[in-house]
């Protein structure tokens, strides 16, 4: 065990020189890094990333490093020690919140110190933009939206949906390091393992970035839960014809303790906020029930609901592709259904 004396590691050059000692005596010389961010903490998505990292490092017989970027409280570090072989912390006043350029510089610096063969990130929008640029700076390769990861002969293989969900590709990342963002909530959460006491505090030299300035940051969440964590989702599509019917859908969702979502068509039309969009380029959701109302079910939309346990639909068109993904469905004009359905559900759920 090697605990970095943070106070003594005064600059990155020293940290860089010390690192080889860190791995001396270990047969696991190569590492897989799972990256979690201090501003998110260890939520379901982070557990998915750590889980994918555990499995990939086992596949490859590499060491699994849990990397915390950003504010790392003692509680967060303590939690992280359960899921990897060692912990690296990259904390810095300029990493108190996300900044695309600064966070990228920090991650690049960190990876140069840890020298990983693979780096795993989650699927939030920040991770998505970091991945290709980090890969470029490290001279590696990149892939996004990884559903499945595997390691063979020191190489990472990634399975992901392509062509808007119409096909699945397995891609070999031949140039290390492989930098990946995984569909985090679809990954089995990390298993607790023996607590690690192997903690390294990395020292970073960062300059404030003046090229891109954050002026305002707004969150437009519905209630307190993320759509990705919703148990029940009622979703509306193009067939609703306007924003007004969403009020009815919301009333229906509320009695089930559910949240609202929409297809891209409904978001593009400006009927509901873009944050409600579910699909290839929207949210990937995994509720117990996804009720699709007046949504035709293009493959791009289905990509967002592939992990839903039960999908049900109400649609006027019996040939709508959505029905091919449903456990049950009703062919009817939603306008005849939503009101009375709500009444009946109030009774049944009382």
């Amino acid at each position: 065990m090697w605990l970095a004396p943070a106070a003594q590691v005064e600059n990155k050059v020293i940290a860089f020189r010390l690192l080889p000692t860190f791995y001396k005596g270990s047969s696991l010389t190569s590492v897989v890094v799972s990256c979690i961010f201090g501003w998110t903490g260890i939520d379901r998505a982070a557990l998915g990333v750590l889980g994918a990292g555990q499995r990939l490092s086992r596949d490859l017989a590499y060491k699994h490093v849990g990397l915390i970027v950003g504010p790392a409280s003692d509680a967060l570090i303590a939690e992280a020690t359960k899921f990897s072989d060692s912990i690296a912390v990259a904390d810095h006043p300029l990493l108190d919140s996300y900044h695309s350029e600064t966070t990228l510089t920090a991650l690049t610096e960190v990876c140069k110190q840890l020298n990983p063969k693979a780096v795993l990130l989650g699927n939030d929008t920040y991770c998505q933009e970091l991945v290709p640029r980090l890969a470029h700076r490290l001279g590696g390769s990149a892939a996004g939206d990884a559903l499945k990861l595997s390691g063979r002969n020191e190489t990472v293989l990634v399975t992901r949906s392509v062509y808007g969900g119409k096909a699945q590709a397995t891609i070999k990342l031949s140039r290390a390091p492989a930098i990946l963002w995984v569909r985090a909530r679809a990954q089995e959460p990390a298993q607790q393992q023996a607590l690690t006491t192997d903690l390294t505090r990395l020292t970073l030299t960062l300059e404030p970035n003046t090229k891109i300035k954050l002026v305002d940051r707004q969150t437009e969440m519905q209630g307190t839960a993320r759509l990705e964590d919703a148990r029940v989702i009622v979703s509306g599509g193009r067939g609703l014809g306007g924003s007004e019917p969403f009020t009815q859908l919301r009333a229906l969702a509320e009695i089930m303790g559910g949240q609202m979502a929409a297809s891209r068509a409904a978001c593009d039309a400006g009927w509901v906020p873009a944050e409600w969009q579910v699909g290839q380029t929207g949210k990937k959701v995994s509720p117990q029930l996804y009720l699709a109302i007046a949504i035709s079910g293009a493959s791009q939309h289905i990509m967002g609901i592939a992990d839903a346990k039960t999908i049900a639909a109400i649609n006027l068109d019996p040939d709508a592709p959505i029905f091919q993904h449903c456990q049950f469905g009703l062919v009817e004009d939603y306008r005849q259904v939503v009101g009375p359905l709500r009444e009946k559900l109030i009774e049944l759920l009382a």
Binding site: D124, I212, L214, V215, R217, Q218, E220, R264, A274, T281
Partner: peptide
């Protein structure tokens, strides 16, 4: 756009921007 909403940024050119859809 971000996962939970949006950000307003002020950026110096030259710059690369990737664009997503909205209304």
């Amino acid at each position: 756009q971000t996962d939970q909403g949006w950000e307003a940024l002020e950026a110096s050119t030259p710059l690369v921007i990737t664009v997503t859809n909205n209304e």
